[in-house]
Design a protein around this nucleic acid. Structure first.
Length: 521
RNA sequence: CGGGGCGUGGCUCAGCCUGGUAGAGCGCAAGGUUUGGGACCUUGAUGUCGCGGGUUCAAAUCCCGCCGCCCCGACCA
Protein backbone atom coordinates (compact mmCIF):
# COMPACT_ATOMS: atom_id res chain seq x y z
CA UNK A 1 0.00 0.00 0.00
CA UNK A 2 2.86 2.33 0.79
CA UNK A 3 4.53 1.48 -2.44
CA UNK A 4 1.97 1.67 -5.22
CA UNK A 5 4.60 1.22 -7.93
CA UNK A 6 5.28 -2.31 -6.82
CA UNK A 7 1.63 -3.14 -6.61
CA UNK A 8 -0.27 -4.68 -9.38
CA UNK A 9 -3.39 -2.68 -10.09
CA UNK A 10 -6.01 -4.95 -8.65
CA UNK A 11 -9.25 -4.76 -10.55
CA UNK A 12 -11.24 -3.02 -7.83
CA UNK A 13 -14.27 -5.22 -8.00
CA UNK A 14 -17.03 -4.99 -5.46
CA UNK A 15 -17.95 -8.09 -3.53
CA UNK A 16 -20.60 -8.63 -6.14
CA UNK A 17 -18.17 -8.99 -8.98
CA UNK A 18 -19.18 -5.70 -10.54
CA UNK A 19 -16.31 -3.41 -11.50
CA UNK A 20 -17.06 0.14 -10.29
CA UNK A 21 -17.83 2.65 -13.02
CA UNK A 22 -14.95 4.86 -11.95
CA UNK A 23 -12.47 2.02 -12.42
CA UNK A 24 -13.47 0.87 -15.87
CA UNK A 25 -16.76 1.93 -17.39
CA UNK A 26 -16.63 -0.60 -20.20
CA UNK A 27 -15.99 -3.47 -17.83
CA UNK A 28 -18.71 -2.19 -15.50
CA UNK A 29 -21.18 -2.38 -18.37
CA UNK A 30 -20.24 -5.96 -19.19
CA UNK A 31 -20.35 -6.93 -15.52
CA UNK A 32 -23.87 -5.53 -15.18
CA UNK A 33 -25.06 -7.41 -18.24
CA UNK A 34 -23.68 -10.67 -16.85
CA UNK A 35 -24.42 -10.23 -13.16
CA UNK A 36 -27.97 -9.04 -13.80
CA UNK A 37 -28.48 -12.11 -15.94
CA UNK A 38 -29.42 -10.17 -19.05
CA UNK A 39 -27.27 -11.85 -21.68
CA UNK A 40 -24.38 -14.18 -22.38
CA UNK A 41 -21.78 -14.42 -25.06
CA UNK A 42 -22.77 -17.33 -27.26
CA UNK A 43 -20.42 -19.77 -28.90
CA UNK A 44 -21.13 -18.02 -32.18
CA UNK A 45 -18.74 -15.20 -32.91
CA UNK A 46 -20.25 -11.80 -32.20
CA UNK A 47 -23.66 -13.17 -31.33
CA UNK A 48 -25.28 -13.02 -27.93
CA UNK A 49 -27.78 -15.09 -26.05
CA UNK A 50 -30.47 -12.89 -24.54
CA UNK A 51 -31.39 -14.52 -21.25
CA UNK A 52 -34.93 -14.51 -19.84
CA UNK A 53 -34.46 -11.42 -17.69
CA UNK A 54 -32.97 -9.44 -20.57
CA UNK A 55 -35.57 -10.71 -22.98
CA UNK A 56 -38.39 -9.78 -20.62
CA UNK A 57 -37.17 -6.17 -20.70
CA UNK A 58 -37.10 -6.29 -24.49
CA UNK A 59 -40.64 -7.68 -24.53
CA UNK A 60 -41.91 -4.80 -22.41
CA UNK A 61 -40.15 -2.33 -24.66
CA UNK A 62 -41.66 -4.06 -27.70
CA UNK A 63 -45.11 -3.75 -26.22
CA UNK A 64 -44.71 -0.03 -25.55
CA UNK A 65 -43.43 0.58 -29.06
CA UNK A 66 -45.89 -1.70 -30.80
CA UNK A 67 -48.87 -0.09 -29.07
CA UNK A 68 -47.68 3.28 -30.32
CA UNK A 69 -47.12 1.98 -33.86
CA UNK A 70 -50.65 0.64 -33.92
CA UNK A 71 -52.01 3.89 -32.50
CA UNK A 72 -50.39 5.78 -35.38
CA UNK A 73 -52.03 3.52 -37.95
CA UNK A 74 -49.38 0.92 -38.63
CA UNK A 75 -49.81 -2.82 -38.96
CA UNK A 76 -47.28 -5.63 -38.57
CA UNK A 77 -46.15 -8.05 -41.26
CA UNK A 78 -43.21 -10.35 -41.85
CA UNK A 79 -40.81 -10.57 -44.77
CA UNK A 80 -38.09 -13.16 -45.55
CA UNK A 81 -34.74 -13.38 -43.82
CA UNK A 82 -33.00 -13.90 -47.17
CA UNK A 83 -32.52 -11.28 -49.81
CA UNK A 84 -31.39 -12.29 -53.29
CA UNK A 85 -28.09 -10.58 -54.03
CA UNK A 86 -29.55 -8.90 -57.10
CA UNK A 87 -32.25 -7.21 -54.98
CA UNK A 88 -29.72 -5.63 -52.69
CA UNK A 89 -27.67 -4.53 -55.66
CA UNK A 90 -30.56 -2.53 -57.13
CA UNK A 91 -30.12 0.54 -54.99
CA UNK A 92 -26.47 1.32 -55.50
CA UNK A 93 -25.78 3.62 -52.58
CA UNK A 94 -27.69 1.33 -50.24
CA UNK A 95 -25.77 -1.74 -51.39
CA UNK A 96 -22.43 0.02 -51.03
CA UNK A 97 -23.34 1.06 -47.50
CA UNK A 98 -23.92 -2.47 -46.31
CA UNK A 99 -21.50 -4.34 -48.59
CA UNK A 100 -18.80 -4.76 -45.96
CA UNK A 101 -20.97 -6.40 -43.34
CA UNK A 102 -23.12 -8.95 -45.08
CA UNK A 103 -23.49 -12.63 -44.28
CA UNK A 104 -24.10 -14.54 -47.49
CA UNK A 105 -25.67 -17.95 -48.05
CA UNK A 106 -24.11 -19.70 -51.01
CA UNK A 107 -25.06 -23.38 -50.54
CA UNK A 108 -28.14 -25.24 -49.47
CA UNK A 109 -26.94 -28.72 -48.52
CA UNK A 110 -24.45 -30.58 -46.35
CA UNK A 111 -22.65 -33.78 -47.14
CA UNK A 112 -20.69 -36.32 -45.16
CA UNK A 113 -17.25 -36.73 -46.71
CA UNK A 114 -14.94 -39.25 -44.97
CA UNK A 115 -17.13 -39.07 -41.90
CA UNK A 116 -16.94 -35.30 -41.77
CA UNK A 117 -19.98 -33.17 -42.35
CA UNK A 118 -19.12 -30.42 -44.81
CA UNK A 119 -20.85 -28.16 -47.27
CA UNK A 120 -21.80 -30.08 -50.38
CA UNK A 121 -19.88 -28.29 -53.14
CA UNK A 122 -22.52 -29.43 -55.61
CA UNK A 123 -25.28 -27.58 -53.81
CA UNK A 124 -24.13 -24.14 -54.81
CA UNK A 125 -26.96 -21.65 -55.22
CA UNK A 126 -27.32 -20.02 -58.61
CA UNK A 127 -27.78 -16.71 -56.89
CA UNK A 128 -26.33 -16.09 -53.43
CA UNK A 129 -28.77 -15.03 -50.70
CA UNK A 130 -27.84 -12.21 -48.37
CA UNK A 131 -29.02 -12.50 -44.78
CA UNK A 132 -30.89 -9.21 -44.35
CA UNK A 133 -28.87 -6.39 -42.82
CA UNK A 134 -32.13 -4.38 -43.22
CA UNK A 135 -35.16 -5.14 -45.34
CA UNK A 136 -35.80 -2.18 -47.65
CA UNK A 137 -34.97 -4.04 -50.83
CA UNK A 138 -36.98 -7.19 -50.21
CA UNK A 139 -39.93 -5.21 -48.94
CA UNK A 140 -39.99 -2.81 -51.83
CA UNK A 141 -39.85 -5.69 -54.29
CA UNK A 142 -43.12 -6.78 -52.70
CA UNK A 143 -44.63 -3.30 -52.47
CA UNK A 144 -44.38 -3.16 -56.26
CA UNK A 145 -47.21 -5.69 -56.36
CA UNK A 146 -49.25 -4.03 -53.66
CA UNK A 147 -49.32 -0.48 -54.92
CA UNK A 148 -51.09 0.63 -58.07
CA UNK A 149 -53.28 3.55 -57.10
CA UNK A 150 -53.22 6.51 -54.73
CA UNK A 151 -56.00 4.58 -53.01
CA UNK A 152 -53.39 2.02 -51.90
CA UNK A 153 -51.49 4.74 -50.08
CA UNK A 154 -50.26 5.36 -47.55
CA UNK A 155 -48.97 1.86 -46.89
CA UNK A 156 -47.90 1.70 -43.24
CA UNK A 157 -46.17 -1.54 -42.30
CA UNK A 158 -43.85 -2.53 -39.50
CA UNK A 159 -41.84 -5.70 -39.06
CA UNK A 160 -40.37 -7.19 -35.90
CA UNK A 161 -37.35 -9.19 -36.94
CA UNK A 162 -33.73 -10.13 -36.52
CA UNK A 163 -31.07 -8.75 -38.83
CA UNK A 164 -27.40 -9.55 -39.33
CA UNK A 165 -24.58 -7.09 -39.74
CA UNK A 166 -21.16 -8.69 -39.74
CA UNK A 167 -19.50 -6.21 -37.44
CA UNK A 168 -15.80 -6.40 -36.75
CA UNK A 169 -16.12 -5.76 -33.06
CA UNK A 170 -19.13 -6.42 -30.94
CA UNK A 171 -20.45 -5.56 -27.48
CA UNK A 172 -23.42 -7.16 -25.79
CA UNK A 173 -26.62 -5.31 -26.75
CA UNK A 174 -24.78 -2.29 -28.17
CA UNK A 175 -23.43 -4.01 -31.24
CA UNK A 176 -23.85 -7.65 -32.04
CA UNK A 177 -23.60 -9.48 -35.35
CA UNK A 178 -27.24 -10.48 -35.09
CA UNK A 179 -29.72 -8.24 -33.34
CA UNK A 180 -33.45 -7.92 -32.83
CA UNK A 181 -35.24 -4.82 -33.96
CA UNK A 182 -38.29 -3.39 -35.60
CA UNK A 183 -38.24 -1.75 -38.97
CA UNK A 184 -41.09 0.35 -40.26
CA UNK A 185 -41.43 0.70 -44.03
CA UNK A 186 -43.99 3.09 -45.37
CA UNK A 187 -45.05 4.31 -48.80
CA UNK A 188 -46.69 7.68 -49.43
CA UNK A 189 -48.15 9.65 -52.31
CA UNK A 190 -46.32 12.86 -51.56
CA UNK A 191 -43.01 14.01 -50.20
CA UNK A 192 -44.71 16.15 -47.56
CA UNK A 193 -46.69 13.21 -46.28
CA UNK A 194 -43.61 10.99 -46.14
CA UNK A 195 -41.58 13.59 -44.32
CA UNK A 196 -44.39 14.01 -41.86
CA UNK A 197 -44.29 10.26 -41.21
CA UNK A 198 -40.55 10.44 -40.58
CA UNK A 199 -41.07 13.10 -37.92
CA UNK A 200 -44.07 11.35 -36.42
CA UNK A 201 -42.13 8.14 -35.83
CA UNK A 202 -39.10 9.96 -34.48
CA UNK A 203 -41.46 11.58 -32.00
CA UNK A 204 -42.73 8.14 -31.02
CA UNK A 205 -39.15 7.02 -30.39
CA UNK A 206 -38.41 10.12 -28.35
CA UNK A 207 -41.54 9.57 -26.30
CA UNK A 208 -40.61 5.97 -25.53
CA UNK A 209 -37.01 6.92 -24.76
CA UNK A 210 -38.00 9.62 -22.30
CA UNK A 211 -41.23 8.44 -20.76
CA UNK A 212 -40.78 4.69 -20.83
CA UNK A 213 -37.03 4.29 -20.62
CA UNK A 214 -36.37 7.46 -18.67
CA UNK A 215 -33.60 8.43 -21.06
CA UNK A 216 -33.63 12.05 -22.27
CA UNK A 217 -32.73 12.43 -25.94
CA UNK A 218 -31.76 15.11 -28.41
CA UNK A 219 -33.62 14.98 -31.71
CA UNK A 220 -32.08 16.06 -34.96
CA UNK A 221 -30.82 15.23 -38.43
CA UNK A 222 -27.74 13.18 -39.24
CA UNK A 223 -25.04 14.80 -41.32
CA UNK A 224 -24.52 13.61 -44.85
CA UNK A 225 -21.70 11.32 -43.76
CA UNK A 226 -23.74 9.62 -41.05
CA UNK A 227 -26.89 9.26 -43.05
CA UNK A 228 -28.49 5.86 -43.69
CA UNK A 229 -27.24 4.35 -46.94
CA UNK A 230 -29.77 5.38 -49.57
CA UNK A 231 -31.60 8.00 -47.51
CA UNK A 232 -32.22 11.65 -48.32
CA UNK A 233 -32.72 12.61 -44.70
CA UNK A 234 -31.94 10.63 -41.56
CA UNK A 235 -33.38 11.82 -38.29
CA UNK A 236 -32.22 10.41 -34.99
CA UNK A 237 -32.51 10.50 -31.24
CA UNK A 238 -29.25 10.68 -29.29
CA UNK A 239 -28.92 9.80 -25.64
CA UNK A 240 -26.02 10.40 -23.29
CA UNK A 241 -24.58 7.53 -21.31
CA UNK A 242 -23.04 7.95 -17.85
CA UNK A 243 -19.53 8.16 -19.28
CA UNK A 244 -20.56 11.15 -21.38
CA UNK A 245 -20.60 9.27 -24.66
CA UNK A 246 -23.51 9.58 -27.05
CA UNK A 247 -25.58 6.62 -28.12
CA UNK A 248 -27.74 6.68 -31.20
CA UNK A 249 -30.98 5.20 -29.97
CA UNK A 250 -33.22 5.30 -33.00
CA UNK A 251 -33.38 6.54 -36.57
CA UNK A 252 -36.12 7.55 -38.97
CA UNK A 253 -35.34 8.02 -42.64
CA UNK A 254 -36.88 9.85 -45.53
CA UNK A 255 -35.86 7.72 -48.51
CA UNK A 256 -37.34 9.94 -51.20
CA UNK A 257 -38.17 8.02 -54.38
CA UNK A 258 -34.87 6.14 -54.43
CA UNK A 259 -36.25 2.75 -53.46
CA UNK A 260 -39.43 3.24 -55.47
CA UNK A 261 -37.31 3.87 -58.52
CA UNK A 262 -34.97 0.94 -58.03
CA UNK A 263 -37.91 -1.40 -57.34
CA UNK A 264 -40.10 0.36 -59.90
CA UNK A 265 -43.01 1.14 -57.61
CA UNK A 266 -45.38 3.58 -59.29
CA UNK A 267 -48.93 4.60 -58.57
CA UNK A 268 -51.65 6.34 -60.51
CA UNK A 269 -52.52 9.64 -58.86
CA UNK A 270 -55.90 11.34 -58.76
CA UNK A 271 -55.24 13.11 -62.03
CA UNK A 272 -54.39 9.85 -63.77
CA UNK A 273 -50.64 10.27 -63.91
CA UNK A 274 -48.02 7.68 -62.96
CA UNK A 275 -45.75 8.69 -60.10
CA UNK A 276 -43.07 7.03 -58.00
CA UNK A 277 -44.05 6.69 -54.34
CA UNK A 278 -42.19 8.33 -51.49
CA UNK A 279 -40.70 6.05 -48.87
CA UNK A 280 -39.70 6.10 -45.22
CA UNK A 281 -38.10 3.60 -42.93
CA UNK A 282 -37.45 3.74 -39.21
CA UNK A 283 -36.07 1.43 -36.58
CA UNK A 284 -34.94 0.78 -33.05
CA UNK A 285 -33.15 -2.31 -31.79
CA UNK A 286 -32.13 -4.32 -28.75
CA UNK A 287 -29.44 -1.68 -28.45
CA UNK A 288 -32.04 0.20 -26.42
CA UNK A 289 -31.53 -2.34 -23.64
CA UNK A 290 -27.88 -1.28 -23.62
CA UNK A 291 -28.94 2.36 -23.40
CA UNK A 292 -31.17 1.55 -20.47
CA UNK A 293 -28.34 -0.12 -18.60
CA UNK A 294 -25.79 2.58 -19.29
CA UNK A 295 -28.06 5.44 -18.36
CA UNK A 296 -29.46 4.38 -15.00
CA UNK A 297 -27.52 1.57 -13.38
CA UNK A 298 -25.02 1.94 -10.56
CA UNK A 299 -22.12 0.02 -9.03
CA UNK A 300 -24.54 -2.29 -7.22
CA UNK A 301 -26.16 -3.48 -10.40
CA UNK A 302 -28.97 -2.81 -12.80
CA UNK A 303 -31.55 -0.09 -12.22
CA UNK A 304 -34.75 -0.38 -14.21
CA UNK A 305 -37.53 2.15 -14.71
CA UNK A 306 -40.79 0.65 -13.37
CA UNK A 307 -42.38 0.70 -16.81
CA UNK A 308 -39.79 -1.76 -18.12
CA UNK A 309 -39.11 -3.83 -15.02
CA UNK A 310 -40.19 -7.45 -15.53
CA UNK A 311 -40.56 -7.61 -11.76
CA UNK A 312 -41.65 -4.32 -10.22
CA UNK A 313 -41.96 -5.44 -6.62
CA UNK A 314 -40.24 -8.35 -4.93
CA UNK A 315 -41.46 -9.50 -1.54
CA UNK A 316 -39.11 -11.27 0.87
CA UNK A 317 -40.59 -13.06 3.88
CA UNK A 318 -38.38 -13.09 6.97
CA UNK A 319 -38.54 -15.72 9.69
CA UNK A 320 -36.69 -17.72 12.27
CA UNK A 321 -39.03 -20.58 13.04
CA UNK A 322 -41.14 -22.74 10.75
CA UNK A 323 -44.19 -21.17 12.35
CA UNK A 324 -42.96 -17.67 11.46
CA UNK A 325 -42.05 -18.84 8.01
CA UNK A 326 -45.63 -20.00 7.43
CA UNK A 327 -47.11 -16.73 8.66
CA UNK A 328 -44.79 -14.29 6.90
CA UNK A 329 -44.92 -16.26 3.66
CA UNK A 330 -48.71 -16.24 3.76
CA UNK A 331 -48.68 -12.50 4.38
CA UNK A 332 -46.21 -12.01 1.50
CA UNK A 333 -48.57 -13.90 -0.80
CA UNK A 334 -51.53 -11.85 0.41
CA UNK A 335 -49.70 -8.56 -0.16
CA UNK A 336 -48.59 -9.80 -3.57
CA UNK A 337 -52.09 -10.54 -4.73
CA UNK A 338 -53.34 -7.17 -3.52
CA UNK A 339 -50.55 -5.46 -5.45
CA UNK A 340 -51.22 -7.57 -8.53
CA UNK A 341 -54.83 -6.48 -8.36
CA UNK A 342 -53.49 -2.98 -8.95
CA UNK A 343 -51.72 -4.14 -12.10
CA UNK A 344 -48.23 -4.52 -10.68
CA UNK A 345 -45.75 -7.27 -11.54
CA UNK A 346 -44.90 -8.88 -8.22
CA UNK A 347 -42.68 -11.77 -7.17
CA UNK A 348 -42.60 -13.45 -3.79
CA UNK A 349 -39.11 -14.76 -3.09
CA UNK A 350 -39.85 -17.62 -0.74
CA UNK A 351 -36.78 -19.66 -1.58
CA UNK A 352 -35.49 -21.53 1.43
CA UNK A 353 -31.89 -21.79 2.53
CA UNK A 354 -30.99 -18.29 1.39
CA UNK A 355 -30.59 -15.58 3.97
CA UNK A 356 -32.65 -12.45 3.38
CA UNK A 357 -29.53 -10.40 2.69
CA UNK A 358 -28.56 -12.69 -0.15
CA UNK A 359 -31.94 -12.14 -1.74
CA UNK A 360 -31.72 -8.36 -1.31
CA UNK A 361 -28.41 -8.28 -3.13
CA UNK A 362 -29.68 -10.48 -5.92
CA UNK A 363 -32.77 -8.40 -6.64
CA UNK A 364 -30.84 -5.16 -6.39
CA UNK A 365 -28.37 -6.53 -8.91
CA UNK A 366 -31.26 -7.36 -11.21
CA UNK A 367 -32.78 -3.92 -10.95
CA UNK A 368 -36.12 -4.57 -9.26
CA UNK A 369 -37.46 -1.08 -8.38
CA UNK A 370 -39.04 -1.90 -5.00
CA UNK A 371 -38.54 -4.58 -2.38
CA UNK A 372 -40.93 -5.31 0.44
CA UNK A 373 -39.71 -7.14 3.53
CA UNK A 374 -42.30 -8.95 5.62
CA UNK A 375 -41.08 -10.06 9.06
CA UNK A 376 -42.70 -11.13 12.34
CA UNK A 377 -42.50 -7.57 13.66
CA UNK A 378 -44.39 -6.29 10.64
CA UNK A 379 -47.12 -8.82 11.28
CA UNK A 380 -47.44 -7.57 14.86
CA UNK A 381 -47.52 -3.93 13.88
CA UNK A 382 -49.48 -4.31 10.68
CA UNK A 383 -46.70 -2.64 8.77
CA UNK A 384 -44.58 -3.33 5.70
CA UNK A 385 -40.95 -2.48 5.09
CA UNK A 386 -40.75 -0.82 1.68
CA UNK A 387 -37.29 -0.39 0.16
CA UNK A 388 -36.58 1.55 -3.02
CA UNK A 389 -33.83 0.43 -5.39
CA UNK A 390 -32.45 3.95 -5.50
CA UNK A 391 -32.85 7.44 -4.11
CA UNK A 392 -31.50 10.65 -5.58
CA UNK A 393 -27.88 10.98 -4.50
CA UNK A 394 -26.72 13.36 -1.82
CA UNK A 395 -23.14 14.60 -1.57
CA UNK A 396 -20.88 12.76 0.83
CA UNK A 397 -23.49 10.42 2.19
CA UNK A 398 -22.37 7.21 3.86
CA UNK A 399 -23.47 3.83 2.58
CA UNK A 400 -25.43 3.28 5.78
CA UNK A 401 -27.31 6.57 5.61
CA UNK A 402 -28.10 5.90 1.97
CA UNK A 403 -29.58 2.55 2.90
CA UNK A 404 -31.67 4.13 5.62
CA UNK A 405 -33.08 6.66 3.21
CA UNK A 406 -34.16 3.93 0.84
CA UNK A 407 -36.09 2.16 3.54
CA UNK A 408 -39.52 3.03 4.94
CA UNK A 409 -41.80 1.25 7.40
CA UNK A 410 -45.36 1.98 6.38
CA UNK A 411 -48.79 0.89 7.59
CA UNK A 412 -49.79 -2.09 5.47
CA UNK A 413 -52.76 -0.48 3.72
CA UNK A 414 -50.86 2.69 2.97
CA UNK A 415 -47.91 0.80 1.52
CA UNK A 416 -50.13 -1.20 -0.79
CA UNK A 417 -52.36 1.68 -1.89
CA UNK A 418 -49.35 3.90 -2.45
CA UNK A 419 -47.42 1.49 -4.63
CA UNK A 420 -48.60 2.71 -8.05
CA UNK A 421 -47.73 6.26 -7.02
CA UNK A 422 -44.33 5.12 -5.85
CA UNK A 423 -43.73 3.44 -9.21
CA UNK A 424 -44.69 6.68 -10.89
CA UNK A 425 -42.36 8.66 -8.70
CA UNK A 426 -39.44 6.31 -9.38
CA UNK A 427 -40.10 6.48 -13.10
CA UNK A 428 -39.97 10.28 -13.00
CA UNK A 429 -36.96 10.41 -10.73
CA UNK A 430 -34.96 8.28 -13.13
CA UNK A 431 -35.67 10.65 -15.99
CA UNK A 432 -34.85 13.66 -13.81
CA UNK A 433 -31.64 12.01 -12.64
CA UNK A 434 -30.61 11.21 -16.20
CA UNK A 435 -31.41 14.79 -17.25
CA UNK A 436 -29.28 16.20 -14.45
CA UNK A 437 -26.43 13.91 -15.39
CA UNK A 438 -26.68 15.06 -18.98
CA UNK A 439 -26.78 18.76 -18.07
CA UNK A 440 -23.68 18.28 -15.94
CA UNK A 441 -21.77 16.95 -18.91
CA UNK A 442 -23.04 19.42 -21.49
CA UNK A 443 -21.17 22.56 -22.60
CA UNK A 444 -21.67 25.39 -25.03
CA UNK A 445 -18.24 25.67 -26.62
CA UNK A 446 -16.83 28.33 -28.94
CA UNK A 447 -13.12 27.66 -29.21
CA UNK A 448 -11.03 24.65 -30.11
CA UNK A 449 -9.02 25.15 -26.92
CA UNK A 450 -12.14 24.80 -24.79
CA UNK A 451 -13.25 21.89 -26.92
CA UNK A 452 -9.96 20.11 -26.37
CA UNK A 453 -10.06 20.82 -22.64
CA UNK A 454 -13.57 19.40 -22.45
CA UNK A 455 -12.90 16.19 -24.32
CA UNK A 456 -9.31 15.51 -23.32
CA UNK A 457 -9.23 16.98 -19.84
CA UNK A 458 -12.71 16.84 -18.36
CA UNK A 459 -13.75 13.55 -19.87
CA UNK A 460 -16.20 15.00 -22.35
CA UNK A 461 -19.92 14.88 -22.90
CA UNK A 462 -22.20 16.84 -25.21
CA UNK A 463 -20.72 19.92 -26.83
CA UNK A 464 -22.87 22.52 -28.58
CA UNK A 465 -20.67 24.04 -31.23
CA UNK A 466 -21.07 26.08 -34.38
CA UNK A 467 -20.17 24.16 -37.47
CA UNK A 468 -19.80 24.96 -41.13
CA UNK A 469 -17.14 22.46 -42.08
CA UNK A 470 -16.96 19.92 -44.87
CA UNK A 471 -17.05 16.16 -44.61
CA UNK A 472 -13.26 16.18 -44.53
CA UNK A 473 -13.36 18.70 -41.68
CA UNK A 474 -15.57 16.32 -39.72
CA UNK A 475 -12.98 13.58 -40.21
CA UNK A 476 -10.34 15.97 -38.96
CA UNK A 477 -12.31 16.55 -35.74
CA UNK A 478 -12.74 12.80 -35.35
CA UNK A 479 -9.04 12.25 -35.75
CA UNK A 480 -8.09 14.95 -33.26
CA UNK A 481 -10.72 14.47 -30.57
CA UNK A 482 -12.54 11.21 -31.43
CA UNK A 483 -15.71 13.25 -31.66
CA UNK A 484 -18.36 13.36 -34.32
CA UNK A 485 -21.44 15.40 -35.09
CA UNK A 486 -24.15 13.37 -33.41
CA UNK A 487 -26.86 15.42 -35.02
CA UNK A 488 -27.90 18.74 -36.41
CA UNK A 489 -30.64 19.33 -33.86
CA UNK A 490 -34.14 20.55 -34.50
CA UNK A 491 -34.39 24.20 -33.50
CA UNK A 492 -36.41 23.47 -30.37
CA UNK A 493 -33.82 20.95 -29.16
CA UNK A 494 -31.08 23.51 -28.73
CA UNK A 495 -30.79 24.87 -25.19
CA UNK A 496 -31.45 28.58 -24.94
CA UNK A 497 -27.86 29.44 -24.12
CA UNK A 498 -26.76 27.79 -27.35
CA UNK A 499 -29.15 29.42 -29.78
CA UNK A 500 -28.34 31.88 -32.51
CA UNK A 501 -25.77 32.19 -35.27
CA UNK A 502 -22.00 32.24 -34.93
CA UNK A 503 -18.82 31.02 -36.54
CA UNK A 504 -17.61 27.48 -37.14
CA UNK A 505 -15.36 26.20 -34.38
CA UNK A 506 -12.88 24.73 -36.86
CA UNK A 507 -13.08 26.81 -40.04
CA UNK A 508 -14.32 30.14 -38.73
CA UNK A 509 -16.95 30.25 -41.45
CA UNK A 510 -20.37 31.62 -40.56
CA UNK A 511 -22.83 29.11 -39.06
CA UNK A 512 -26.57 29.55 -38.67
CA UNK A 513 -26.97 27.23 -35.68
CA UNK A 514 -25.03 24.92 -33.43
CA UNK A 515 -24.67 21.16 -33.80
CA UNK A 516 -24.27 18.47 -31.17
CA UNK A 517 -20.78 17.00 -30.97
CA UNK A 518 -19.70 14.09 -28.78
CA UNK A 519 -17.78 10.90 -28.63
CA UNK A 520 -20.07 8.04 -29.41
CA UNK A 521 -20.62 4.32 -29.17
C1' C B 1 -7.58 -7.66 -41.59
C1' G B 2 -3.31 -5.79 -38.15
C1' G B 3 -1.61 -6.02 -32.71
C1' G B 4 -2.20 -8.52 -27.89
C1' G B 5 -4.33 -12.25 -24.57
C1' C B 6 -6.67 -16.75 -23.33
C1' G B 7 -8.58 -22.03 -24.05
C1' U B 8 -7.82 -27.21 -17.53
C1' G B 9 -15.08 -29.84 -13.55
C1' G B 10 -20.98 -25.30 -14.35
C1' C B 11 -17.84 -20.43 -13.19
C1' U B 12 -12.96 -17.95 -11.90
C1' C B 13 -8.35 -19.76 -12.15
C1' A B 14 -3.58 -22.54 -10.23
C1' G B 15 -0.49 -26.38 -12.30
C1' C B 16 3.18 -25.84 -17.74
C1' C B 17 9.27 -22.72 -17.19
C1' U B 18 12.09 -27.86 -14.86
C1' G B 19 7.30 -34.14 -18.42
C1' G B 20 5.88 -38.80 -13.68
C1' U B 21 -1.46 -40.47 -9.73
C1' A B 22 -5.47 -33.50 -12.53
C1' G B 23 -5.93 -29.36 -8.16
C1' A B 24 -8.17 -24.89 -5.36
C1' G B 25 -12.08 -21.40 -4.49
C1' C B 26 -16.98 -20.49 -5.85
C1' G B 27 -21.24 -23.06 -7.53
C1' C B 28 -24.07 -27.83 -7.39
C1' A B 29 -26.40 -32.28 -4.34
C1' A B 30 -27.68 -34.50 0.57
C1' G B 31 -28.14 -33.96 5.95
C1' G B 32 -27.90 -30.73 10.16
C1' U B 33 -27.61 -25.96 12.61
C1' U B 34 -29.03 -20.91 10.74
C1' U B 35 -32.26 -16.70 8.66
C1' G B 36 -34.54 -8.17 9.76
C1' G B 37 -28.18 -6.82 4.53
C1' G B 38 -24.27 -11.79 1.24
C1' A B 39 -24.50 -18.20 7.01
C1' C B 40 -21.80 -22.34 8.77
C1' C B 41 -20.45 -27.57 9.49
C1' U B 42 -20.20 -32.59 7.53
C1' U B 43 -20.44 -35.66 3.32
C1' G B 44 -20.68 -36.14 -1.98
C1' A B 45 -20.89 -35.67 -7.49
C1' U B 46 -18.70 -33.37 -11.55
C1' G B 47 -12.73 -33.38 -16.26
C1' U B 48 -11.87 -36.92 -23.79
C1' C B 49 -6.79 -30.54 -19.74
C1' G B 50 -9.92 -26.60 -27.31
C1' C B 51 -8.75 -30.10 -31.75
C1' G B 52 -5.10 -32.92 -34.72
C1' G B 53 -0.27 -34.67 -35.24
C1' G B 54 4.85 -35.33 -33.37
C1' U B 55 8.90 -36.26 -29.54
C1' U B 56 9.15 -39.67 -25.18
C1' C B 57 8.97 -45.57 -21.29
C1' A B 58 5.62 -41.44 -19.92
C1' A B 59 2.60 -35.13 -22.33
C1' A B 60 -2.20 -30.52 -19.30
C1' U B 61 3.25 -29.64 -19.36
C1' C B 62 8.00 -29.92 -24.86
C1' C B 63 7.55 -29.24 -30.64
C1' C B 64 4.43 -28.41 -35.21
C1' G B 65 -0.29 -27.34 -37.35
C1' C B 66 -5.32 -25.97 -36.84
C1' C B 67 -9.78 -24.05 -34.46
C1' G B 68 -12.40 -20.90 -31.19
C1' C B 69 -13.25 -16.82 -28.00
C1' C B 70 -11.96 -12.13 -25.61
C1' C B 71 -9.41 -7.27 -25.60
C1' C B 72 -7.08 -2.94 -28.52
C1' G B 73 -7.38 -0.44 -33.76
C1' A B 74 -9.83 0.34 -38.99
C1' C B 75 -16.16 -0.47 -39.97
C1' C B 76 -21.06 0.35 -37.76
C1' A B 77 -27.54 0.58 -34.90
Amino acid sequence: MSNPQNQKQQPATAADGITPRATDYGQWYLDIVKRADLADHSSVRGCMVIKPHGYAIWEKLQRELDDRFKATGHVNAYFPLFIPLSFLAKEEEHAAGFAKECAVVTHYRLKSIDGKVTVDPESKLEEPLVVRPTSETIIWAQYKNWIQSYRDLPLLINQWANVVRWEMRTRLFLRTAEFLWQEGHTAHATEAEAREEVSRMLAVYADVAEHVMGVPVVRGHKTEGERFAGAIDTQCIEGMMQDGKALQMGTSHYLGQNFAKSADVKFLNQTGQLEYVHATSWGVSTRLVGALIMTHSDDNGLILPPKLAPIQVVIVPIYKTPEEQARTTAEAQAVASELRAQGLAVKVDDREGLQPGAKYYEWERKGVPVRIEVGPKDLEKGSLCVVRRFVLEQEGESEQDLRKRKKQFLPRAEAIAGMPALMDALQKELLARARAMREKKTRVIDTLADFEAFFKGEGGGFAWVHWAGTHADEDEMAKRYETSIRCIPFADQIPEAARGAGTCILTGRPSAQRVLMAKSY
